[in-house]
Design a protein around this nucleic acid. Structure first.
Length: 590
RNA sequence: GGUCACGUAGCUCAGUCGGAUAGAGCAAUUGUCUUCUAAGCAGUUGGUCGCAGGUUCGAAUCCUGCCGUGAUCACCA
């Protein structure tokens, strides 16, 4: 479907060309700002040089020409250097019908090919927290946006299930747990393992303090502490494939996966594919061989492998230690190559925090140097930290907002808010609980996704997440109102649909509605769901304004009533679909 | 120190290719429910768009410098 802007554009170009005999101009055409009346605006200032006439003359000439030639234009008026066009009621009537066609909602992307999106790369030594939630919501939302545009998307996560930090939880469990399991402790698996990660840190810190008291220097004490010695021993056992260690590792990880799965489900996110670092961490070595052959990498005297990126303004970067073991970036080289070999993917998006920007710049650059044709189709969707009023969240110090706790809390707050309003007397208890969940999570997700990904979020648990104003529940409430209208309207409400006299509220709603596809496109292209949030809010606000001022079901003119009802239902449809991209469900009643 | 990002109302944030009087929400406050759901709507209060230059018909937006905040510059991940 073409927007009004696209439909009017040729007439404006034609007018300028006809009136000035200059064809190579770029016209500034845009939807009219809502505080002015009109649908489409042409900015006249840039035309001063071409026409060499006063603005009023230019505006009047172009306006008259367009009014004469473009059938959808009813009138034009000039405000300073801005030429605003109004459309006919007949045009709006057809516009609403166009907006109800399916192809309006399922537009095709010009880009073809499968997209892989990586998000959520958790460690298996502790439960998920608010920082992960931002990552999950961003990645999932971007994936849904691209899917809606007809692209095939593979959602993937890589689980960091090995290494020294995993051994810490294992060691502490062996020493302190007395065989505790999720069943015996009635603790979610990831929380149980996290408990022992904290227990390790506590015991380790005490050992360091004791050693320092005996006169050891801090750095020395950190190495010499028995807990640390034992953890390294455990890691060596793991790497050697010691049966008992591997069995414990499997067992504890399986607890964590069950816990993660519950959190993912409640949050409403999923994956098409899951990779485990224990399977992929050796993959990079083959790439290193290739790079050495191609002379992209080089050996140092001690046998370690490096790449020299000083030409691009980076340093020399280590890729393989002298003992032949991989570092972080080696693994990432390997997984990237493997993904493109294993799947027919066109591009790859990594949803990872801003603290790894440098890492991804280097990673992409190395892959480009290696000559992979897809290397310039790798993107880092970088996002800012979630901070608390007390500062950064730190797992080790226990200053994190736990994902599960937060969702429980959101549910509770939604419950008490809803009960205070007391509108739900007739609903069944299960329906009520489900509604509290929808509202609580809606508020949380909206709150997180509202912020531009590249900006930091300051999250104040005490101030909690709002339910009024620019919030998830506001959008949900708007939708529930529309559903209520629908159920109260009689079934034959559409029968009277015909051209009728329209007011400003209807027109501004249509103006916003028709921008929906562009808004979704733009949001996806920029990997920025907050743009969808902005759009949804604009639409909901405009709808509520309309709802407040126009009596939809009781309009005197039956054709007007039919038009307004259809308009309302279209708003509802757009709101529901757009919110789905944010992972937010809409209640029929609240 | 180098590189990158950010700095807009008391607070949290919009403001995309430079365009009209810089917008929302929260908080404070005033109206508004016998009328389609008041989680709404309307109003009041609140701004040196970090600072200083530059580009231009026009700058919150682009350029330069400075100040502030954060991230990063590991044989950690």
């Amino acid at each position: 479907m073409k927007t009004t802007l696209e439909r009017l554009k040729p007439f404006l170009y034609e007018a300028v060309q006809h009136l000035s005999s200059v064809s190579l101009v770029k016209l500034d055409i845009r939807p009219t700002r809502k505080e002015f009346s009109g649908h489409i605006t042409l900015v006249l200032f840039p035309l001063l040089k071409i026409f060499k006439k006063p603005l009023e003359h230019i505006g009047r000439e172009i306006g008259s020409y367009v009014k004469e030639h473009a059938p959808m234009v009813r009138s034009f008026h000039l405000v300073k250097g801005f030429l605003n066009f109004e459309c006919t009621d007949d045009y709006y009537f057809r516009l609403l019908q166009d907006l109800c066609e399916d192809d309006f909602f399922f537009q095709k992307s010009s880009l073809k090919g499968t997209l892989m999106i990586e998000y959520s790369s958790p460690n298996t030594n502790k439960p998920l927290h608010l920082g992960h939630i931002r990552n999950h919501l961003l990645g999932h939302s971007i994936a849904e946006l691209f899917k809606s545009m007809g692209r095939k998307v593979i959602k993937t996560q890589i689980i960091n299930d090995r290494g020294i930090h995993i051994c810490k939880s294992m060691l502490a469990w062996k020493k302190f747990s007395g065989g505790e399991t999720p069943e015996s402790s009635n603790l979610k698996g990831d929380h149980l393992v996290g408990k022992y990660y904290v227990a390790f840190e506590k015991a380790y810190r005490k050992e360091i303090a004791d050693l320092c008291a005996q006169g050891y220097k801090r750095v020395r004490a950190e190495e010499k502490a028995p807990m640390m010695q034992e953890v390294h021993k455990l890691l060596r056992l793991w790497e050697r494939g010691d049966a008992e260690t591997i069995a414990l590792w499997r067992r504890m990880n399986s607890w964590v996966y069950q816990g993660f799965e519950q959190t993912y489900q409640r949050l409403g996110i999923d994956f098409d594919d899951t990779q485990y670092e224990s399977n992929t961490y050796l993959l990079g070595k083959r790439i290193i061989e290739e790079g050495l052959k191609k002379k992209v990498f080089f050996h140092k005297e001690d046998g370690s492998v490096w790449v020299d990126l000083t030409a691009e303004g980076f340093d020399e970067k280590l890729l393989l230690r002298k003992d032949g073991t991989s570092v972080y970036i080696t693994q990432d080289l390997g997984t990237a190559v493997e993904r493109f070999e294993k799947y027919p993917i066109e591009a790859l998006i990594y949803t990872v925090g801003e603290e790894q920007e440098y890492h991804f710049q280097v990673l992409f650059l190395i892959l480009k140097r290696m000559g992979y044709p897809w290397a310039d189709r790798l993107f880092h969707l970088s996002y800012g930290m979630v901070e608390l009023p007390s500062g950064k969240m730190k797992s080790r110090e226990g200053t994190v907002v736990d994902a599960d706790d937060l969702m429980i809390q959101m549910h509770q707050v939604a419950k008490s808010f809803t009960q205070d309003l007391g509108k739900l007397k007739d609903s069944a208890p299960e329906e009520k609980e489900s509604l509290y969940e929808t509202i609580g999570l809606g508020a949380l997700k909206y709150h997180i996704l509202k912020v531009d990904p590249k900006k930091r979020i300051l999250f104040d648990p005490k101030a909690s997440v709002d339910f009024k104003g620019n919030t998830g529940p506001y959008i949900q409430y708007t939708y529930a109102r529309i559903r209520s209208l629908e159920s109260k309207a009689c079934g034959n409400a559409y029968e009277n649909l015909s051209v009728c006299l329209l007011g400003e509220y209807e027109k501004s709603l249509l103006k916003i509605l028709e921008q929906y596809p562009d808004s979704i496109n733009f949001s996806a292209k920029n990997l920025n769901p907050s743009l969808v949030v902005n759009y949804v809010y604009e639409l909901a606000k405009s709808f509520n304004d309309f709802y407040q001022n126009v009596n939809i079901l009781k309009a005197h003119d039956p054709s007007k009533a039919a038009f307004c009802l259809k308009l309302a239902l279209t708003c509802g449809k757009v709101l529901k679909i757009a919110m789905k991209f944010l992972g937010i469900n809409m209640p029929d009643n609240m």
